[in-house]
């Protein structure tokens, strides 16, 4: 049973990490908590569903949905976040409020355009389950774990092996100095939004396939849970976010598996968060040893 629960936990944790990655990348550069990332997750799930429904091609659904959602991210940054942040002495709460508004809008748009009812992906993997000894593996889990690993590898390569990634890291370190050194901080910000919103879209599709249902309320839990994951991961650290996502996924799974206490499962992420803030306020991986 322990092995099975470990696998369950890694699968959930992968989804969490992917969901929170967008917010991490954006926080890393802009220092704003972008709740609207959960809206990108909703938008991505619906785009993906629509394309899969029309073409029956899952790869196409992922690619187009991630690109479209990433583009929306860039536009939102260009026309909403950038004008807000360019005002002198802006309070950090202003972009936060804007992002909450955008998130609320995403759920209502989904309801108005696609209707309030549940949509199902109904992806046919050919086989229902794969049994390895006593371990049960559902094909969707393999898809999720492999795809998450693939996306994180691509992310790592972009951030560490490309010029754009260097610009991102320099901007995340200190955007004023980076700009003074001739780094194009605007393209670093655009990169954050393309990757951040694209990842959220991929996470949305995966959750849609995993639970075979998407509704306008899809983003509600990620909208707050991702906060605890990014803080836990050390605010702005991609590696920290992966570790924190897996950690919360495993903690929640073990919690419901062994009935550790009678509190809602969703509160675990926040209990862990409080403990971390008390013991190690900089998060599991602090900014100084970023990436």
């Amino acid at each position: 049973m322990f092995l099975q629960q470990l696998l369950n936990g890694i699968m959930i944790g992968s989804v969490y990490a992917l969901t929170a990655m967008g917010a991490t990348l954006i926080y890393g550069i802009l220092r704003i908590l972008d709740i609207a990332n959960a809206g990108a997750y909703v938008a991505g799930a619906y785009f993906g569903w629509f394309i899969y429904f029309k073409t029956g091609n899952l790869i196409l659904a992922f690619l187009i949905s991630m690109a479209a959602t990433g583009l929306i991210g860039v536009l939102l940054h260009r026309f909403i976040y950038a004008p807000i942040l360019s005002k002198p002495r802006i309070l950090p709460i202003v972009p936060l409020v804007a992002s909450v508004g955008l998130f609320t809008l995403s759920g209502d748009l989904a309801r108005l355009i696609a209707g309030p009812g549940t949509k199902a992906y109904n992806v046919d993997f050919g086989t229902e389950v794969i049994n390895i000894g006593k371990l049960t593996v559902v094909p969707a889990w393999i898809l999720i774990i492999v795809l998450t690993a693939l996306l994180f590898t691509i992310l790592w390569l972009i951030l560490n092996r490309t010029k754009l990634g260097l610009a991102w890291r320099a901007t995340a370190e200190d955007s004023d100095i980076a700009q003074a050194m001739g780094v194009n901080t605007n393209s670093a910000m655009a990169l954050s939004y393309i990757l951040g919103y694209g990842f959220a879209a991929a996470a949305g599709i995966m959750v849609g396939i995993l639970y075979n249902s998407i509704t306008p309320a899809l983003g509600e839990v990620p909208s707050y849970k991702m906060l605890s994951i990014i803080v836990l991961g050390g605010l702005g650290s991609p590696v920290g976010t992966v570790i924190a996502g897996l950690f919360i996924g495993l903690a929640e799974t073990m919690f419901s598996a062994y009935n550790l206490a009678f509190i809602p499962k969703d509160s675990i992420a926040f209990i862990v968060l409080i403990l971390v803030l008390l013991i190690k306020p900089s998060g599991l991986i602090s900014k100084s040893n970023n990436i």
Partner: peptide, 10 residues
């Protein structure tokens, strides 16, 4: 919460 894997395994 839509996650029941752990409960059903248990």
């Amino acid at each position: 919460d839509n996650e029941f894997t752990a409960i059903i395994t248990k």
